[in-house]
Simulated scan of single mutants.
Amino acid sequence: MKIILTQEVSGLGTPGDIVEVKNGYGRNYLLPQGFAIQWTKGAEKQVVVIKRAREAREIRDLGQANEVKGQLAGLKVTLSARSGNGGRLFGSITPAEIVDAVKAAGGPALDRRRLELPGHIKTTGSYNVSVKLHPEVTATFPVNVVAAK
């Protein structure tokens, strides 16, 4: 099955890529989740629009990615969340909340889709979060989750 990716799928490609996948994987997972659209000649023309939007968001080059990595290395990110006894959170911490906390701490604007969380963050404590800035550069920074007062 030939599809066009609309979001980044690890191990498969980036938005705008035209890839060949097994029928079940495309029909049962990628298409319903909105990660891809069915390939047609008309849809292939949309690839140009998707790639243009990606380039606007993307970090331009390796030097800029290393610069952003340096900014993240010295950053102290603290998130405050409601929690119950024993430090268990009511809900979990989302990538969007982490991106907002990085911005509030004076860090660079990040794309929430490029964050890699260490599983679901459902308790207070310190976590290491990675962000893929460039195909060759991945930055890791600590996120401290504390109980809201």
Rank of each mutant, 00 (worst) to 15 (best):
L89V: 11
V49P: 00
G13M: 05
K41S: 14
E8D: 12
A36L: 02
V146G: 01
I59W: 00
K76R: 12
G26Y: 00
I4A: 01
R82P: 01
S126M: 15
V102P: 00
P15R: 03
V99Y: 01
I37H: 02
A148F: 11
G34V: 03
E97F: 03
L89P: 04
R60T: 12
V21E: 04
T138R: 10
G42E: 15
G63M: 10
M1Y: 05
E58W: 03
K122F: 05
G11V: 11
N128R: 10
L117K: 04
A105N: 07
V19H: 03
I98A: 02
E55N: 12
L31M: 08
V47H: 00
V48H: 14
E8N: 11
S92T: 08
G11N: 11
V146A: 12
G16F: 08
A73T: 07
T14D: 15
V145C: 02
G63R: 14
S92G: 08
N23S: 13
S80P: 03
A56N: 11
L89M: 10
G42K: 14
S80N: 14
A104C: 14
N28P: 01
L75G: 02
Q33E: 11
V137Y: 00
A147Y: 02
V9S: 05
H120A: 14
G87M: 07
L110W: 00
T140E: 14
R57N: 13
G74W: 08
G42T: 15
G74E: 09
D61Y: 12
R54M: 12
I93A: 00
F90H: 13
G13H: 04
N23K: 13
E55A: 15
K76W: 06
M1G: 01
L79W: 03
K51D: 06
S130E: 13
A96V: 10
T40F: 04
S92M: 11
T6M: 09
E8L: 08
G26S: 02
A96N: 09
K132Y: 06
G26E: 00
G11R: 09
H120C: 05
A81R: 15
